[in-house]
Structures are given as structure tokens and as C-alpha cells.
């Protein structure tokens, strides 16, 4: 078997303040080329921190204390910022959570679709425009030639997210990170966007790291899953296995709370307090074991 495209090993992060509270606790995961890996967990579990760590965008309040992030064998955490910029600019992309703020309000859609192509692929303005047009068509935007000249505020939320998806796939990156890409959208638009990401991912054979708090969303799109709780991976494996035969109590509770997880729109029940308490105890025990090791 070929080595994975992305391999995160033993990633640990803490708050930078006096509390030094752990935020990621020994997170490891691998992502093969062309695979969709879901990071599933409640708000605050550390999902975005994993995504940001890969992109070198960990906020200043958080410090990565340990671990490796290998993209095609290169440890991103050990690179200087210039090399990291070059590698990520050309090989990775982000589909953000909120399409209403992720496009520059002062730049035309076309300019925002083509700038990366011109910088990293050296395309001429005309060639980049042709590529952008094709991308807009691919994400099913009508009248792409007109949309190229619009400003973001002239697009609907769903259209903006389509533009952002087009932008993410523009350079044929090896890795696309999607951080809750449907959370800010209407329920009806959510499904279309989810399907679109899957279609684009399949067609371009792109690996996707898909961050979500919604079990139903993860169930629809992910090949493999990591369940994150308080920055600790509770369960990991093929999505089908986890959804059909969950091993960890947390996963079972999550599934029980989402009886209709094939329908992303159905609102989940809260996870029972005893399960949460048991998980917290497990995390605390792992922390103690670490402290004794180190």
C-alpha cells in the first residue's frame, strides 16, 4: 500500500495561557489520496484546531506542543513559513464555514478565482479566466461569464459557497480541508452543497478532510471517520463500520441521539450526562498516564 497523502501523528496542542489546558490530546489520523476523512465532534472538541494546524493557521492563543503533520512525506510543522506557504498554496485548499465572510467584498468573483492559478500555476490572465469559467460551470453556476464580474454581495449564500468550492478545486490540490462547509447554509442548500463537494472530490480524485459536528452530514460524505471528544480521538475507522457497529460508548450515544442520521436536517438529542462523564474520566485518565510517562 502506498503511503498516505496526509498523516498526522501524536499531535498535541495546549492553550498558551497560564492554564496550559490541553486542546488536542495525541491526535493521529491518516488520509489516503482521494479519500474523504471526517473529523466529527461537538463544538469545542478541537476539530478546527486540527484543520488549522495542517494549514499553519493555529491561532496565537494555542500552541502545538508535539506531533508531526506529514503531507506527502514533508513535515509541515518543521517547515519555515515561506516553504509552507508555497506547498499549501499549490497543494492544499480550504472550504470555509461561512461563505458570507470568506470572499473579499472588494474584489470581483473572477479575480478571486484566478489569483491562485496565476500565482502558483503561472497561467496568463486569459488562460486563468478560461479555467475559472470552466470551474464555475462545474459547480453549476448559471451564466458563469457574468458571475465572474460580480462582487460577492451580489451572490446568494449558496452561490458564494459554490464559488468557494470552485476556488478550492481550482489548482487541482491534493488536499481540500472543509471546515463545517454547510453549517451556515439553509437546510435545502446544505444537501446540494454536500453533494457538490462529493462530486467534485470524486471527479478530481481529491482527498478531503471534512470537519463537522453533524453525524448525519458525516454519514453522507465520509469514507473514514475520527470521533473527537475534548481533543482526544475516541474512535476511528471506516465510516460504515463506525456507524453500523460502534465500539465506543460515546459513539453509541451519539448514534442513539441521532436516530435518523441519514437525514441531516433532523435535530439530535443531547448525549446523556453519564456518557459524557465517563468520557471525561477516560480523557482525565489518559492525561494522568501521559504525565507519568513524560
Amino acid at each position: 500500500m502506498s503511503p498516505p497523502l496526509l498523516s498526522i501523528a501524536g499531535l498535541r496542542a495546549r492553550r498558551r495561557d497560564r492554564s496550559a489546558q490541553p486542546i488536542l490530546r495525541d491526535v493521529s489520523l491518516t488520509l489516503a489520496a482521494g479519500e474523504v476523512h471526517g473529523i466529527l465532534g461537538e463544538s469545542g472538541a478541537g476539530k478546527s484546531t486540527v484543520a488549522k494546524a495542517i494549514l499553519g493557521l493555529v491561532p496565537r492563543g494555542i500552541r502545538i506542543t508535539d506531533g508531526r503533520i506529514l503531507l506527502d512525506g514533508r513535515n509541515l510543522l518543521a517547515l519555515d513559513s515561506r516553504s509552507l506557504r508555497r506547498i499549501l498554496g499549490a497543494e492544499a485548499a480550504l472550504i470555509p464555514q461561512d461563505p458570507s465572510t470568506a470572499l473579499n467584498p472588494g474584489r470581483r468573483v473572477g479575480a478571486q478565482l484566478t489569483d491562485g492559478l496565476r500565482l502558483w500555476r503561472g497561467l496568463s490572465a486569459a488562460a486563468a479566466d478560461r479555467r475559472a469559467l470552466a470551474l464555475l460551470e462545474e459547480v453549476q453556476i448559471r451564466e458563469p461569464a457574468r458571475v465572474m464580474w460580480l462582487y460577492p454581495h451580489e451572490l446568494s449564500g449558496g452561490m458564494r459557497q459554490r464559488v468557494l468550492i470552485a476556488a478550492a478545486f481550482a489548482l487541482e490540490p491534493k488536499l481540500v480541508i472543509a471546515d463545517e462547509p454547510t453549517t451556515a447554509l439553509d437546510v435545502t442548500v446544505q444537501k446540494q452543497i454536500l453533494r457538490l463537494i462529493r462530486v467534485m472530490q470524486t471527479r478530481h480524485r481529491t482527498a478531503v478532510l471534512f470537519v463537522t459536528h453533524a453525524l448525519g452530514v458525516a454519514a453522507q460524505i465520509c469514507d473514514t471517520l475520527s470521533l473527537l471528544f475534548m481533543g482526544k480521538v475516541m474512535e476511528q475507522g471506516p465510516a460504515a463500520d463506525i456507524l453500523l457497529a460502534p465500539r465506543h460508548a460515546y459513539t453509541r450515544a451519539l448514534l442513539a441521539a441521532n436516530p435518523r442520521h441519514d437525514r441531516p436536517a433532523s435535530s439530535p438529542e443531547p448525549i446523556p450526562e453519564p456518557v459524557i462523564a465517563a468520557c471525561k474520566a477516560e480523557v482525565a485518565a489518559a492525561d494522568r498516564a501521559d504525565a507519568e510517562d513524560g
Binding site: 493557521l57 508555497r86 485548499a93 465572510t101 473579499n104 489569483d115
Partner: peptide, 22 residues
């Protein structure tokens, strides 16, 4: 601080380009 600058940073733009261009 805006998201569009974060996204431009992911695109690999230099700090100067983020300030002047975005």
C-alpha cells in the same frame, strides 16, 4: 482578521500581498 484574509493566506499569498491586495 476577516475570513477572506484567512482564505487568501491559505492560498499562499505573502503578508505584503494580504495587506495590499486583500
Amino acid at each position: 482578521q476577516q475570513d477572506y484574509v484567512l482564505l487568501a493566506r491559505v492560498k499562499g499569498f505573502s503578508e505584503l500581498r494580504l495587506v495590499l491586495g486583500e
